[in-house]
Nucleic acid binder design. Structure first.
Lengths: 243, 243
DNA sequence: GCCATTTAAATGCCAGACAATTAAATAACT
DNA sequence: AGTTATTTAATTGTCTGGCATTTAAATGGC
């Protein structure tokens, strides 16, 4: 393997790209062992620290894992949905916070995606999903719950709804949309009245899901979206007037 | 700052996590300069190569960028949607190829998400989006087009549809779902008859979008999904009988 | 005041070494 | 022979020290 010395990219970035491409194309398959760092240094004609920087880049993307010891080395990692979740959530969160995405835009995206899962979830949700949602509703009605805990419970509730669709690809894609909204929602202070209204809608949602009523689920979600949006709007308004 | 020597994680991983957390929490803000590698070595009490490995991990996630020279250093990067796209697509693609996700499951997720964008796109699509879609339809009807090129055009067509919703968060989330399907679709051989049918559905879709007819768009998408799924099923069947 | 040069600070890269870990090979012992 | 203890070898993890390269600012000459 060779590296272009005229490229303006770091050597470690070029090497990482070379190996990453090999993984994507299938040249390197899951659990296959990469050459040792010393061998890679020879092959790419760079020093070991440079190879290591390249490997750390790949490790940061969960594309490889490393083991120490005699039979150790770097191995192509089987990227699992579980591993990809946090990455997806971190990225989505930072995208929202760094790009001045309005609450409305984020909210619209989140509920648009979530509503698309509703029919499938109404069809396929298991008793487990329903139980999780009922439990979260119960938690949400506890007095003395902090806004953060309320929002976290809200996220758990909605993730159960999404998971009810029984499609891991959907769950993965939705994780970013649903979880990344939490920091934004945390900025809203929920009064007792707000919570009661949200719990009411959550209950309607769970009821509809229990009855396999897709339209009812969609209606409840639409209600939640408009209520959340309006709530956020009024909170922002109040803050603006105060300042 | 301190690092736990009892943790079984690499020092570079711990340092990367520490800095990453500072970025997520807002302790480090966009375009802020991190301490130099030498200063970080002192602060974390590790050597410079270890610090560098940590920084490369963060760079691989586009959380920082580095500049050489007198006023250079590592800066917190403003994560843009454009930067996040390829990451998202790579991850989604690998998730599908490494986890034996069935074509049906992937297809269901993709069309479920895409159909959720349809009403918004019917409402907001610009002339530009329509023009892109018409151009791709034209390209798809060219004889002699390879299956790969046909699929790539298909992806471009659908991305224009999604972008028509005018919500960058939606576009980002959908990018993974739509683009990651391409390698799977490339495995299907599209006969002339298949292509004609798909182009017919694409045209119906564009027509409905032009008329701001949300229901028509949804119908066309539903038709596409079932046609694609059946096509894939018959191709797989044929291959199985052959072998 | 403007341009060329020097300087200093920073990242990029390398060579070599040692520590820590791990599995396999070997030796010792029963 | 079988089992246990020891040694060995391979590999990653980390450190030290250094040099090359890049870049902006400081300096100096005109």
């Amino acid at each position: 393997m060779k590296i272009d010395p005229n490229s303006n990219a770091d050597l470690s970035a070029q090497i990482a790209k070379s190996i990453r491409d090999a993984i994507i194309s299938g040249d390197l398959i899951v659990d296959q062992r990469l050459p040792s760092e010393a061998e890679l240094s020879d092959q790419f004609d760079v020093s070991r620290p440079t190879v290591r920087e390249a490997l750390k880049r790949l490790a940061a993307q969960s594309l490889i894992r490393t083991q120490r010891g005699a039979t150790g080395g770097a191995f192509v990692n089987k990227l699992s949905f579980e591993e990809a979740y946090p990455q997806q959530i971190t990225t989505s969160t930072l995208l929202l916070s760094m790009n001045a995405v309005s609450f409305e835009t984020a909210c619209e995206a989140r509920y648009t995606l979530e509503r698309s899962c509703a029919p499938l979830s109404a069809l396929r949700r298991t008793a487990d999903h329903l139980a999780t949602m009922r439990a979260e509703i119960h938690r949400q009605s506890q007095p003395g719950l902090t806004d953060e805990a309320f929002c976290a419970s809200d996220v758990a509730f909605h993730r159960a709804l999404v998971d009810g669709a029984g499609n891991p690809v959907l769950s993965y894609q939705l994780a970013g949309a649903v979880e990344a909204m939490q920091p934004l929602m945390n900025m809203i202070t929920f009064s007792a009245r707000d919570r009661a209204k949200i719990i009411e809608l959550h209950t309607a949602l769970a009821d509809a899901l229990e009855a396999n009523n897709a339209i009812g689920v969609d209606t409840a979600l639409a209600g939640l979206e408009s209520y959340t949006t309006n709530l956020a709007k009024s909170v922002m308004e109040k803050r603006k007037n105060k300042a």
